[in-house]
Simulated scan of single mutants.
Amino acid sequence: MQFDLTDLSLFRHVIEAGSITHGAERANLALAAASTRIRNMEKSLGAPLLLRNRQGVVPTPAGRTLLQHARLLLTQAERLREDLSSYTGGLAGQIRILSNTNALTEFLPEALSAFLAGHPQVSIDLEERLSDEIVGLIAEGVGDLGIVAGTVDTGRLETYPFRSDRFVLVVPNAHPLAGSGHVAFAEVLGHDFVGLDRASALQRFLAAKASRIGQPLRLRVQLRSFDAVCRMVEAGVGLGIVPETTAERATRTMAITAVDLADSWAARDLTLCIRSLSELPPSARQLVEHLRKES
């Protein structure tokens, strides 16, 4: 049985993505090459590692065992690379961050840009997830650090305050709701909405909230950014839900109004979460300290 680090990294990506196709994309491999590697791994082991179905793939018991060891070995390999980098001119390595939509779009771009400018040999793998998913994945060792909503139970993870923000409803200036001081999410579900791509963590969160209320979220358009959502709202396509920081910028140049959401979940205290600061690779520890100073 011989697996190299590329095999192990691919296998981890496949399991985390839930499909060989998306796992191959994350590993920067062609689908045919990725499929061949997985088949060769199973042939070398003499047992199936994946159960394949129409929805994607899930690990077999052997696959779950391999995944545990793969994560450990890949972490050790990354730490080895960082430790040796001190002899070749600086700190190097890759940091895996899992973030909810709010932090990813509103706060991380500036913070990470400043960090990466001072650490040219460090790269960052940034993935958007729901907050409750992030907690579980960080605990399992899938990522180095996560950024989640402060309302989520983080269990035994170490946590640090990051930022505060809230979601607001944005409407055209001429809309009847523009004069409202605040409104509940349930009261506006009868309107058309403009939102992010259905795969985004925030859109999945809002769809779940609407489902619990018993009404579908009527999405007319799905876009890639909050700024684009605001432009569509201004054009009268539908209403939107965006971070307050986004709305404050947009209302300066667009004919839209921000209306407070009365729901408790609209307030977003964002939290950094990690397994253990002392166990992080050096570059990841430096990033945590950088983000804490930026808070």
Rank of each mutant, 00 (worst) to 15 (best):
G89P: 04
R79G: 10
T88W: 15
A92R: 07
S99P: 05
T88K: 14
E82P: 05
L80N: 11
S113C: 05
N100S: 12
R79H: 15
F107L: 09
D83Q: 14
E110I: 11
L74V: 04
L112M: 02
G90Y: 07
A114K: 13
T101Q: 04
L91C: 03
L104I: 07
D83V: 08
G89S: 05
A77E: 10
E106L: 09
T101D: 05
T88N: 12
T75R: 10
N100V: 06
R96C: 06
G93W: 02
L104C: 10
T88L: 10
E82F: 00
E110N: 11
A77P: 02
N100Q: 11
L84V: 13
L91W: 05
D83R: 12
E82R: 06
E106A: 14
E82Q: 12
L80Q: 12
S86Y: 15
L80M: 11
L112N: 01
E78R: 12
A77R: 07
L84N: 10
S99G: 10
T88Q: 14
Y87I: 15
R96K: 15
L74D: 02
N102T: 14
L80F: 08
L91I: 06
S86P: 07
N102D: 09
R96G: 05
R96H: 13
L98S: 09
L98T: 06
L84R: 12
L91N: 02
L74E: 00
S113G: 15
R96W: 09
G90E: 07
S99V: 05
G93K: 00
S99Y: 03
T75A: 09
Q94E: 11
N102W: 09
S99M: 05
F115I: 02
I97S: 01
S113R: 13
E106C: 14
Y87H: 15
G93Q: 04
Q94N: 10
D83E: 14
F107G: 06
L116E: 06
G93F: 03
A114N: 13
E106R: 11
R96F: 05
F115S: 01
A103N: 03
S86W: 14
N102G: 09
Q94C: 03
T101K: 00
F107Q: 07
E78Q: 14
I97Q: 01
E78Y: 06
R81I: 04
R79P: 07
L108K: 00
G89N: 04
L80R: 14
E110S: 15
L116S: 03
E82L: 02
L112D: 00
Y87M: 13
G89V: 03
L84Q: 13
F115T: 04
R79F: 08
A103C: 09
L116G: 05
R79M: 15
P109Q: 03
F107R: 05
L108I: 00
Y87C: 13
L108D: 01
S113Y: 08
A103E: 02
Q76R: 12
S86I: 14
I97Y: 02
A92T: 07
I97P: 00
I95S: 00
I97N: 01
L104T: 11
T75F: 08
L80Y: 11
D83I: 08
L112P: 00
L91Q: 04
E78M: 12
G93N: 02
R81F: 08
G89D: 07
A111S: 12
A103Y: 04
R81T: 10
